[in-house]
Design a protein around this nucleic acid. Sequence first.
DNA 1: AAATCGGGGTG
DNA 2: CACCCAGATTT
Length: 342
Amino acid sequence: MRPVDLPAFRAALLNWFDAVGRDLPWRAGAEGARDPYRVWVSEILLQQTQVSRGLLYYERFLTAFPTVQALAAAPIEDVLKAWEGCGYYARARNLHRAAGFVAQQGFPATYEGWLALPGVGPYTAAAISSLSCGEQRAVNDGNVRRVLSRLYGEKTPSEAWVQEKANALLDPTRPGTWNEAVMDLGATLCTPKNPQCPQCPVNAFCAAFRAGEPSAYPAPKVRAAVKEVRAVAVLIGDDQNAVLEQRSGNLLGGLYGLPLEEMRDEEDGKAALGRLLSRLQAHEPMLLGTVTHTMTHRHLTVDVYRAQATLPRARVQDAALSRLDHKALALLKARQESLFGL
DNA sequence: AAATCGGGGTG
DNA sequence: CACCCAGATTT
């Protein structure tokens, strides 16, 4: 691969970014000295989450928790409620835990300091420290990986390869802005499909553009198979006040949801329902319907029953629920509307 | 190094 | 449906 003319490459990309870079709410403030709390919240929210979606949650989250002190003082239930529907809930749990440290000790002033916080990995520490501390750290995310794969014509870039190239390209005079510029390029022009190469400010430097098939870079990542999971759940109460259990473990951990039992392999729904009713001392099960829910690595099919029991109910409105549980609750409303002939 | 962890956007 | 998204953590 031919060496890149660094000064020309940097100038071309930064001039483009200064002219047409996206205007995003967490980009307010002096270059290299952004408000660390706002940058931090945005970076956690944007992990594996598209900007258009992150915008919604960013406004909601900052309204609920305007400062790191407010976040640290809030109950985790309130933090998860603000995160409801955004996915990857360990992000919210880690952010809340880290806010406790920061409220005590103040914001980290270095890459290493940020990296030590829960939920902050190499990408996020580089982003925050370059944007709010002025550190010369190059980010390595999905955008950077794709842009550099095309720039150098490397179809199967390793993490280490991407980081090495990103480090070498980073403009030491404007590190934070450089990082944002590369990511903006990847998000707006150098997209996975149908990249807008004619509009690209650095197409003259790009090996994939010269080769004529930029969308072939990088090669798709192999992904794990989606696992089929069957389960039964019970709705005790109604769609506004219901018996809810807090999920533990990694899957939807910390969220609330309808009591649920997974069916084991070679097991029918009756056995799982039996376990569930027995555990809750519930009776009179009546099938409301079946909901399906797909996540990255599993496909759930859940038979939802209505049942009776004397157990405390929670206000659904105040609890953080996954989309799966909202679908299950919606079965009751759909049933009532059909009964009333709506 | 590979699996796990949500939910939605986009072609 | 395939593939991806301003990744981190656990196995």
